[in-house]
Simulated scan of single mutants.
Amino acid sequence: MRPNCESCARDLPPDGEAYVCSYECTWCAACRNGFPGPACPNCGGDLQRRPTRVVRPADG
């Protein structure tokens, strides 16, 4: 998963709200809400909420 928004470069934490398309274009919710339609502006793919990544403690 990409660590930041492709539009505004905002850091996207693993458990935060972000959107991705089938080509893994990645957007924060604020930028996504500014798009004129439901498709990715880069590739035209369907945008969906990015699944969260479970943060596991380091082995020690």
Rank of each mutant, 00 (worst) to 15 (best):
G60F: 13
P36S: 08
E24S: 10
V55I: 10
N33L: 12
E24V: 03
E6F: 06
S22P: 00
T52K: 14
P41K: 09
R53T: 04
C31F: 02
G37C: 10
S22Q: 13
T52M: 08
S22H: 12
Y23S: 12
W27R: 02
A29E: 15
C40W: 10
R49C: 03
G34W: 05
M1W: 02
P3F: 08
N33M: 12
N42E: 03
T52W: 12
A58W: 00
C40P: 00
P41L: 09
Q48R: 15
V20P: 00
R56A: 02
C43N: 03
F35K: 04
A30S: 12
R56T: 01
T52Y: 10
V55D: 00
D15P: 00
C25K: 06
P41N: 08
F35Y: 13
C5T: 04
P38W: 10
P3R: 05
P3I: 06
L12G: 01
P13H: 08
E17S: 14
G16N: 05
C40F: 09
V54D: 01
P3H: 05
A58I: 01
T26V: 09
A29T: 02
E6S: 08
G34C: 10
M1K: 11
W27G: 01
E24I: 06
G37T: 05
Q48I: 07
P38Q: 10
V55S: 08
R49Y: 06
E17N: 12
A18T: 04
N33A: 14
F35S: 03
N4E: 13
N4S: 14
T26S: 11
G37Y: 09
D59K: 15
A30M: 06
E17R: 15
C21P: 01
E17T: 15
S22L: 11
R32V: 01
A39C: 05
G44Y: 14
V54H: 04
V20T: 13
G60V: 02
P14A: 09
R50W: 02
D59Q: 11
Y23N: 12
A58D: 07
S22M: 07
A9D: 14
C31Q: 07
P38D: 14
S7M: 10
C28K: 06
N4H: 12
C40V: 03
N42T: 05
G60Y: 11
D59V: 06
F35G: 00
E6K: 09
V20H: 03
S7R: 12
A58F: 01
N33I: 00
D15M: 05
R56H: 03
G45A: 10
M1N: 11
C25T: 02
P36E: 14
C40S: 05
C25W: 14
C31H: 04
D15Y: 07
V20F: 03
R50C: 01
C25G: 02
S22N: 12
P41H: 08
R50L: 04
V55C: 03
R10N: 06
P13Q: 13
A58S: 09
L12V: 03
T26E: 03
R32L: 02
V55Q: 09
C40H: 04
M1S: 14
D46M: 14
A39K: 15
G34Q: 15
A39Q: 13
A39P: 01
C40Q: 10
S7D: 07
D11G: 03
N33G: 13
R2D: 04
L47G: 03
